[in-house]
């Protein structure tokens, strides 16, 4: 099984944004489809406000868990700067889903700029294909900021033909036991789908 038969999804953002849960849902959906899946994640020190990345790889057989730089089919970023940092993981035909959110890294001096100038322009110029997602705003409207991760997954699902609607439903049902939460998560997922009409 060559690596070309594996779909690579890299999720990036800032510790505490729900990235692990997003990766887990994606992996569960793949398992429901009957695919092999491996995921690599970060725990520990970097979670204290540092940048985090979760690698998810799905396919018939997936031997290793880390996506090579230049090998990601999809980059799903929860924060703009963390989209830029991981952008070179994308293949030349890769797609970046970027949540419209800026979280400044710790600023250590008043004379130091907190953020990159024109990050939007840089991302648009460098990404092969970039899809902006107003995930944070949509989650705020839904009344739960934690839903950003599910909204982004909904967006990703529109470009991931390997997984069907039933796989996502099964993943959400397995991860969220309470019917009320499951319903809210399902609704947020749909918002993400709607935000990303198929090309």
């Amino acid at each position: 099984m060559a690596s070309t038969d594996i779909t690579n999804v890299l999720l990036s953002g800032v510790g505490g944004q729900g990235i692990l849960t997003a990766g887990r849902l994606l992996a569960l959906a793949a398992l429901h489809r009957g695919l092999d899946v491996k995921m690599s994640e970060v725990h520990g020190m970097s979670q204290r406000g540092g940048n985090v990345d979760t690698h998810v790889r799905l396919g018939e057989t997936v031997p290793s868990s880390l996506i090579p730089r230049g090998g990601a089919h999809f980059l799903v970023s929860f924060e703009k700067l963390e989209a830029l940092r991981y952008l070179d993981y994308l293949r030349p035909d890769g797609v970046a889903f970027v949540n419209r959110l800026e979280i400044s890294p710790l600023t250590v001096a008043i004379k130091q700029p907190s953020y990159v100038d024109d990050v939007d322009g840089l991302l648009e110029q460098k990404a092969p294909l970039l899809l902006w997602i107003d995930g944070t705003e949509m989650a705020r409207t839904l009344g739960d900021l934690r839903m950003v991760n599910v909204i982004l997954l909904g967006a990703l699902s529109t470009r991931l033909p390997a997984l069907a609607e039933a796989d996502w439903e099964a993943a959400i049902a397995e991860r969220f036991a309470k019917p009320k939460v499951r319903e809210a998560v399902g609704a947020a997922f749909l918002k993400g789908v709607e935000a990303c009409p198929a090309p």
Binding site: R48, R85, P105
Partner: peptide, 11 residues
């Protein structure tokens, strides 16, 4: 591009 580092920090 100079991408600022995002080291871990106290909450």
């Amino acid at each position: 591009v100079e991408i600022p580092r995002r080291p871990p920090t106290m909450c």
